[in-house]
C-alpha cells in the first residue's frame, strides 16, 4: 500500500493537451519525414495539422497547467550544463517539469517545426487546393516565373534542412528519454502516455 515516495513531479502523468499535441506532432513529423510523398496533398494536410498542434501547444504554454507553461521550463544554458554533468555522472534527478536539456530540446524542436511548417505552407499555399498554390497561380501573378521558382527553391532548401535536423533531434530526444529512464529506474514514457505506474507495490 505504499504509494509514498512517488511525490516527485516526474511520475505524474502529463495533462491531456501536452500528451495529445506531443504524440500528434510526433506522428505528423514521422509521417511527413519518412512516409508521405513530398509536396503531395497528404503531406500538406499533415503539415497544417502539425502547425495547428504546435500552435495549440504554444497557447497552452501560456495559459495551460503550471507544469506545461513555459515559465515551468525556461530555456537555460547553465541549468542544461549542470544537467549534462549529472547525466555524464550517471546521476538522475527529478525535475518538476521538463528537465533542462529536455526543455532546450522542446524549444529547438518547436522552432524547427515552425520553420518547417511555415516554409512548407509558403510553398504549398492553401490546404484545399488540388494543386500547390504556386502552380495554380502561375500566369495569374504578374511576377516573374523565375523569381517565383527561385523563391521556392530557397524555401525548399530551408524546409528540407530544418526537417532533417528535426528528425535528428527527435532521435536524440528519444535517446535522452531512454537514458533518463534507465537512470531513473522507471519508464519516463509512461507519464506522456497518461498512464500511472501500475500496481501500488
Amino acid at each position: 500500500m505504499s504509494e509514498t515516495g512517488s511525490g516527485g513531479g516526474a511520475d505524474r502523468p502529463w495533462d491531456p493537451i501536452v500528451r495529445l499535441t506531443h504524440w500528434g506532432i510526433a506522428v505528423a513529423v514521422l509521417l511527413n519525414g519518412l512516409v508521405t510523398e513530398d509536396g503531395g496533398q497528404v503531406h500538406v494536410w499533415i503539415g497544417y495539422a502539425a502547425l495547428a498542434l504546435l500552435a495549440l501547444r504554444l497557447v497552452w504554454g501560456v495559459v495551460g497547467t503550471r507544469r506545461a507553461r513555459f515559465t515551468a521550463f525556461p530555456p537555460s544554458l547553465s541549468a542544461a550544463r549542470e544537467h549534462l554533468g549529472e547525466l555524464v555522472g550517471l546521476r538522475y534527478r527529478d525535475y518538476p517539469s521538463h528537465n533542462p536539456l529536455g526543455s532546450l530540446m522542446a524549444y529547438a524542436l518547436w522552432g524547427l517545426l515552425a520553420v518547417v511548417t511555415l516554409t512548407g505552407i509558403g510553398m504549398a499555399g492553401s490546404p484545399f487546393d488540388e494543386r500547390p498554390a504556386f502552380v495554380q497561380a502561375e500566369g495569374q501573378l504578374d511576377r516573374d516565373d523565375d523569381e517565383r521558382e527561385e523563391e521556392n527553391e530557397v524555401l525548399e532548401e530551408i524546409h528540407e534542412v530544418a526537417a532533417n535536423l528535426m528528425l535528428v533531434l527527435a532521435a536524440l530526444h528519444v535517446g535522452g528519454v531512454a537514458l533518463e529512464s534507465s537512470l531513473a529506474g522507471r519508464n519516463l514514457v509512461r507519464p506522456m502516455l497518461g498512464t500511472r505506474r501500475g500496481g501500488g507495490r
Binding site: 495533462d15 491531456p16 493537451i17 500528451r19 495529445l20 499535441t21 500528434g24 497544417y48 495539422a49 502547425l51 495547428a52 498542434l53 500552435a55 495549440l56 490546404p127 484545399f128
Partner: peptide, 13 residues
C-alpha cells in the same frame, strides 16, 4: 482536450 485539438486543426486549415 480532444475538442480543443480539433478546433485548433480546423482553425489552422
Amino acid at each position: 482536450a480532444v475538442v480543443l485539438v480539433l478546433q485548433a486543426l480546423a482553425a489552422a486549415f
